[in-house]
Computed example of a mutant assay.
Amino acid sequence: MKEQHIIEVNKDICIGCSLCKNDCPVNNIIIKDKKSVIKNQDCIKCGHCVTICPTKAITMTGFDEPPIEFTKQHTLDSNELLMAIKSRRTIRKFKNKEVTSEIIEQIIESGRFTPSAKNAQDVSYIVLGDDKSKYEEIAVKFFRRIKPIVSLWMKDAKEVTIDDNFFFKKAPIAIMVVTKDKISGSLAASNMSLMAESYGLGVLYSGFFTSVVNNLPKLRKHLNLKSKGHVVTTLVLGYPDVKYRRTAQKEIANVRYL
Rank of each mutant, 00 (worst) to 15 (best):
M1E: 13
H5P: 01
I7Q: 10
V9Q: 10
D12H: 10
I13R: 12
C14G: 09
C14R: 10
I15K: 13
S18Q: 14
S18F: 01
L19G: 10
C20F: 05
C20T: 08
C24N: 11
V26M: 12
N28A: 09
I30G: 05
I31P: 05
D33Y: 04
K34W: 02
K35Y: 05
K35F: 03
I38A: 06
K39A: 08
C43V: 06
K45T: 05
K45P: 04
C46I: 05
C46N: 07
H48L: 13
V50P: 09
T51Y: 10
P54N: 05
K56G: 09
K56S: 15
K56F: 04
F70I: 05
F70D: 15
Q73P: 00
T75M: 13
L76W: 04
D77E: 08
S78N: 11
L82S: 13
A84S: 15
K86D: 13
K97N: 05
T100I: 01
S101N: 12
S101I: 06
E105R: 14
Q106S: 13
I107Y: 04
I107T: 07
I108G: 03
F113R: 15
T114Q: 08
P115S: 06
S116G: 06
S116Y: 03
A117M: 10
A117R: 09
K118C: 12
S124C: 04
G129C: 02
D130W: 00
S133F: 07
K134M: 13
A139K: 04
F142D: 08
F143C: 07
K147A: 02
I149K: 14
V150I: 14
M154S: 13
A157L: 03
K158E: 03
V160W: 06
D164F: 00
N165L: 03
F166M: 07
F168D: 02
K169C: 09
P172K: 04
I173F: 01
I173R: 02
V177H: 05
D181K: 07
K182M: 10
I183M: 14
G185K: 09
S186C: 09
N191G: 01
M192D: 03
L194Q: 11
L194E: 11
E197G: 07
S198I: 03
L201E: 02
V203A: 06
S206L: 02
T210S: 13
T210G: 07
V213T: 14
N214G: 11
L219F: 06
R220P: 04
R220D: 06
H222C: 09
N224G: 01
L225F: 04
G229T: 01
G229L: 00
H230A: 09
V231C: 10
T233C: 11
T233E: 13
L235G: 04
V236G: 01
D241V: 02
V242E: 15
R245H: 13
R246F: 01
R246N: 14
A248Y: 08
E251F: 07
R256E: 15
Y257Q: 08
